[in-house]
């Protein structure tokens, strides 16, 4: 170990203090503020500290607020499942069927649109899905449909936009898991008489499950907290919780309600984290 004299230990404190101070000043304290504001209420344009749970009680008594949470959860579960189901085969094909020297480029290509700006990506889907968009125009041209499909401003559009983003993210995480597996597993399984499908189902899939869970958890967290995709693609039909939070901030300037809703959102994420913890922990061993 390094020499831990009092002198050098004091120096170490100099190095670590700025980061700690920054985190306390701009993360811990603001968070404490937000919690206290969530216990206040808005009177006119003023925030009055009443120290009660009114904002939280409102959430459960006003159906449009509660519905926001259910819409968010519904979209998030659907997106997480769909993205995983679509990403796994792609990651597997890249890891197993694409020649070694092309794998890196195939992976980079698969996640290239990941690097477009988030706002721009949702806008691009709007171009594709709108009533006059590429899909509707093409389908009309071919004659499959006679009326444009109402694709944009629907929850479906939100789901498509999300799945597009998370397929890329999950392909990346699942691929890195598949590639870490020793080829010996496959050889051993084949030696013991398993066919390709059995090897995949009983050996490869269980071994990559922790990685899938990490990716799925990440998808869940990012998806349920996102405002842009549902706002641009989903419109104002079925509001998600982040949309409702932003509405409280913007139109109604109701910071206490927005704060309370955000803390509820955080609670949901925490519950998801705790229920995934078993699998998330497995990764470390």
């Amino acid at each position: 170990m390094s020499v831990d004299s009092d002198h050098s230990l004091r120096k170490a404190w100099y190095f670590v203090t700025p980061a700690i101070a920054w985190t306390i000043a701009f993360f811990v304290i603001p968070f404490a503020f937000m919690v206290s504001v969530s216990l206040a209420s808005r009177v006119g344009r003023q925030i009055v500290y009443s120290w009660d749970l009114d904002n939280y009680i409102n959430f459960f008594s006003k159906s449009y607020l509660l519905k926001g949470l259910f819409v968010s959860l519904e979209i998030t579960f659907l997106v997480t499942i769909l993205s995983t189901l679509l990403a796994y085969p792609l990651a597997w094909i890249i890891a197993e069927r694409v020649p070694k020297k092309w794998q890196r480029i195939a992976l980079i290509m698969a996640i290239l649109p990941f690097w477009t700006s988030y706002v721009v990506r949702s806008y691009s889907w709007l171009l594709v899905l709108s009533t006059d968009g590429v899909i509707n125009k093409s389908l009309l041209q071919i004659g499959i449909i006679s009326e444009p499909l109402p694709l944009s401003n629907t929850t479906t559009a939100t789901v498509i936009g999300f799945v597009h983003f998370f397929v890329m993210l999950l392909t990346l995480t699942i691929y890195s898991n598949l590639i870490q597996l020793s080829p010996n597993y496959k050889r051993a399984s084949a030696d013991l008489g398993a066919n390709a499908f059995q090897t995949f189902w009983h050996v490869i899939l269980p071994l990559t499950l922790p990685g899938i869970m990490v990716g799925a958890f990440l998808t869940f967290v990012l998806c349920i907290g996102d405002y842009i995709t549902p706002q641009i693609l989903g419109g104002n039909n079925e509001l998600t919780l982040p949309q409702i939070i932003m509405m409280q901030l913007g139109r109604r300037a109701d910071i206490p309600t927005a704060a309370a809703l955000s803390i509820i959102l955080m609670g949901v994420v925490t519950v998801a984290y705790l229920s995934c913890l078993r699998w998330l922990k497995m990764e470390r061993t």
Binding site: A19, I20, T23, I24, F26, F27, V28, P30, F31, F33, M34, V37, V221, G225, Y227, P242, I245, L249, I255, A258, A259, S262, I263, L265, M266, V269, Y273
Partner: peptide, 19 residues
């Protein structure tokens, strides 16, 4: 403490700082 902000959504960080 230093890694804690990673677990919180950007919306909450923004809202806290705004307040």
């Amino acid at each position: 403490l230093i890694t804690a902000p990673m677990t919180v959504s950007y919306l909450i960080i923004a809202l806290g700082l705004l307040v």
